[in-house]
């Protein structure tokens, strides 16, 4: 079964991996190039996180694709990706394939820390492919976003428990977004073996994929989006679009698989874009 559309095969071994795991810190800085476009004064890949500047989809926007140079994260790995978008710049970041969290040889957990900073009058579209927690894996994923007043953001996070037909791995995620220093969104999930109640009727029930798409847009301050439970067949998934207590809209989606989560998030994003005018 195809879970993510663009997911590539990942070989669960890494010949070069030391038993202790990899420590890697990648960095991106986007700044105006002085000609109406966006330059990338820093584009430093590290370890399994290789970064490529790719063809821009929108004018004036720099596009970066995270290319998995090795299969990662494996148990014991500590990866981080730090991105800053300076005033006047527009950056879009995607990934070439789904990220698959795999068990390491050392039996320890892995961490993946993403830190995003967007200055005022700057824009970041953070749209990676899904994160898949393979059987036996154990990953803590942290995404911390600091937005200045007047910053714009589109951020997508998709978590999938297990590859097709596979038992789920353990996945703890936390997404913290601050706007002008104030808490805007803080959402954690503890899923998979050992997490209490996660597969019960209050959290995911039988769904095995969960996603959120956040749109922070200054225009929402005066005109927040309307609440909408998105039309769907609950056998496949369910989703809603909600205004947050700030200039932002959040789409929350749950589904059987990554493909359906993506469909629901896309539908919610369109509804949010219509609300933003």
């Amino acid at each position: 079964m195809d879970r993510g559309g663009r997911m590539t095969a990942v070989v669960p071994t890494r010949a070069t991996a030391p038993a202790s795991g990899v420590r890697a810190a990648a960095r991106i800085v986007a700044a105006p190039d002085g000609r109406g476009g966006t330059a990338l004064p820093v584009l430093d890949g590290a370890g399994p996180l290789a970064l490529r500047r790719t063809r821009a989809v929108a004018p004036g926007t720099a596009q970066v694709t995270v290319v998995g140079a090795m299969s990662a994260p494996l148990g014991g790995d500590h990866l981080s990706l730090d991105t800053r978008v300076r005033t006047g710049a527009r950056l879009a970041v995607g990934s070439a394939a789904a990220t698959v969290s795999l068990p390491g040889r050392c039996g320890r957990s892995a961490t993946y820390d993403v830190r995003l900073t967007v200055d005022s009058d700057a824009e970041l579209c953070w749209l990676p492919e899904p994160l898949i927690a393979a059987a036996g894996s154990d990953l803590a994923m942290t995404t911390r976003v600091d937005l200045a007043e007047g910053a714009r953001l589109v951020l997508r996070e998709e978590l999938v428990l297990g590859r097709a037909g596979e038992r789920p791995g353990r996945l703890v995620s936390r997404l913290t977004v601050r706007l002008d220093g104030r808490a805007l969104l803080d959402q954690g999930l503890a899923l998979g073996p050992g997490a209490p109640g996660w597969s019960g009727p209050a959290v995911l029930d039988r769904y095995r994929a969960v996603g959120q798409l956040l749109v922070v847009e200054p225009r929402f301050r005066d005109r927040p989006c309307q609440v909408a439970v998105l039309p769907s067949d609950p056998a496949e998934g369910e989703a809603m679009l909600t205004p947050l207590a700030g200039p932002a809209a959040l789409v929350t989606a749950l589904a059987e698989d990554a493909l359906m989560v993506r469909r629901l998030l896309d539908a919610g994003r369109q509804a949010a874009a219509a609300a933003a005018g």
Binding site: R174, G188, A190, L204, T252
Partner: peptide, 22 residues
């Protein structure tokens, strides 16, 4: 600061609450 407090979410409770409110 308050970021040290847990933020454990229950997506089904959130979505069901919006359905229920309607």
């Amino acid at each position: 600061d308050v970021d040290a407090l847990p933020a454990a979410s229950a997506p089904l409770l959130e979505i069901a609450a919006e359905r229920h409110a309607a």
